[in-house]
Design a binder for these strands. Structure first.
Lengths: 341, 341
DNA sequence: GATTAATCTTTTCGCGCGTAAAGTTTTTAT
DNA sequence: ATAAAAACTTTACGCGCGAAAAGATTAATC
């Protein structure tokens, strides 16, 4: 263990018996030095605990190993889970991820982009706020720094995008619901934060038409990211106003569905597919909490793994030169049948 | 807006008509320069978009403005919410917070501490994993870098601690439950991740003894941070084994309670305080999702605001010299009565 | 073993800024 | 108005490293 304190790379190079420039090369990319040299350095690394100075390193490097990860709302376990997945993949690829949350606010999202610029990141993985995003700011950012957008796209931002095939999500669930009972009404926010909501609505409309059913869309008031509360309050109102034309409700996302389930409970309406149930309720996303609702929520699962690995791999390709044309990659959802529908 | 591109502080000093060292002082602390000078700089700041180079700044500064925020499990909205609160307070105080999650793994927690060292942070706010933490590593870290622990304490780590008065949480709920119905059984993990669980158990035992009731503790198997699933599986087993001696269950925390509610639903047992209910269930924490369970969860609320502001203020005091003796600050919980108990 | 290629060493420069010291100007106090 | 204090300018140095160039060493090829 650390006999004498190592101050800088100069001293560390001395005790390891390798020249400083070579040690520098090693820290930049261990595989870029001969195996015998690497062994010597790593041996010294065990005897003395030296770590290169982050700030001095990044000051002159043309390309840092920093990667920014931005999500719109970290208190949503869906994004927390996605972020975790992405972080680990970045680390595995030798990068240093830093996580940011916009907390649902445009101002913060812009601040984060500003902060990121001064981090000189090699690249950025960003899930934008959506409707609340400052599109111009994001476009400008994407033009300056290799960026991959995920979850929610900004058309024409000039960046790669990785996300889910949202129309397919809704279609999949509509087909299942129609096959097993009454056709669903669509329950959503009047002003959805996330543009995916629009694609899901369209998916619902198309699927309903294809199957020959009359669509019903119930829009509820409320802005921001407190989806559960919006779903609960809006759900209660919609229920008492008898706005549902069938006994089946497809929610725009799981968090809204969780709120709607709470509303049903409050209204003493039993939810599920059994005979004595008043409603069937389904969501979309397979939110981490969906399997613990009462009843457990039938939903369409996002492919967390595919999205996170797709996003990271795309970013790495972009960073490492192969700046192919900007692509849009969409993954299909999988039906998760539980007891709510 | 940016006419000519400003490369460095030298050039920016030139266009603002102020000497570079003074500009440097300004960026270090705007209030440290004369108002007239500040005005000139800020005017130039509007005309040209210059931002000092983060890396060059931090390289030589004795004290950076970086603050590390570490939580054990970011996919838990409780910590996400706490982190958000803390982040914003740090920013308001002029610091640059960076958020890390240990994701429940000791290895990662240690890696994060290593990363933090190279960030030369002015201070760190850390909620340790708890039982899984490498106590020695954390102690060593606290000795080197001003650190405030929160949520879960590491005794003798030589750091300030801000958290909740966990025995009081349990006592408060036990008293309420006894007053309004049968005395509660205590439902917890056999090997709780978080040491707060032990204090809550003790609070339960003490309160039960004080009130003259026989305590019953139900411990369920399972490790890690998937509390809901552990609560669900363990709850199902405990229910079928008829281990509950009364109709009232106090869970060690809300996430466990959410899982237990799912178990009750699965076992077709109605939960609530109405006549036809089989069980009353209560939690502890006031987890963000607790008001959306079915039925809504009666719980003891942590004081998010007090904890986050207490932690940040304590850290700022520590950073700004006043290194008083290490203190432990505990906040009381508030009873949140909902329908589950 | 000679040739070539790959890798390493030595030397040198510069990045953008913090910081300190000495001298000058401005502000505040008396 | 004058002295003292506060703030500024000028000058100079150094932080810890990346990067580039030229020469020396090692390894791979035949």
């Amino acid at each position: 263990m650390g006999d004498t304190k190592i101050k800088n790379m100069e001293e560390f190079a001395a005790v390891s018996g390798i020249s400083r420039p070579t040690v520098s090369k090693y820290f930049n990319d261990p595989s870029s030095v001969r195996a015998s040299t690497r062994a010597k350095i790593e041996e010294a690394l065990e005897r003395y605990d030296y770590r290169p100075n982050m700030f001095a390193m990044n000051q002159n490097r043309k390309l840092t190993k920093n990667v920014g990860v931005v999500v719109p709302y970290l208190a949503d376990p869906f994004f927390a889970e996605l972020a975790r997945n992405i972080e680990q993949r970045c680390i595995a690829a030798g990068y240093r991820p830093t996580l940011y949350s916009s907390h649902g606010e445009q101002g913060l999202e812009n601040d984060i982009l500003e902060s990121l610029r001064s981090l000189k990141p090699a690249g950025v993985l960003m899930a934008p706020l959506g409707r609340a995003s400052d599109k111009a700011a994001i476009e400008k950012f994407c033009a300056d720094i290799p960026t991959v957008l995920f979850d929610s796209s900004i058309p024409d931002a000039g960046a790669n995008f990785i996300g889910s095939d949202n129309p397919q999500f809704a279609a999949l669930m509509v087909e299942y619901l129609c096959r097993t009972g009454e056709p669903p009404c669509f329950f959503e926010m009047a002003k959805p934060s996330n543009p995916n909501a629009n694609k899901r609505r369209q998916g619902y409309l198309d699927a309903m038409e294809r199957l020959g059913h009359e669509p019903t869309i119930i829009k509820v008031e409320g802005e921001g990211w407190d989806f559960e509360e919006i779903g609960r309050v809006g759900g209660l109102k919609a229920l008492s106003d008898k706005r549902f034309t069938t006994n089946t409700v497809l929610c725009s996302n799981d968090r809204l569905a969780i709120g709607f389930l709470a509303a049903c409970y409050e209204a003493r309406l039993r939810v599920g597919r059994e005979a004595d149930c008043a409603y069937r309720v389904a969501g979309q996303d397979d939110h981490p909490f969906s399997r613990f609702t009462c009843p457990p929520l039938t939903t369409v699962a996002q492919d967390y793994e595919a999205i996170s690995s797709g996003a990271v791999e795309t970013l790495l390709h972009t960073i490492e030169g192969e700046a192919g044309p900007h692509r849009v990659t969409l993954f299909e959802g999988k039906l998760i049948m539980r007891d709510s529908a």
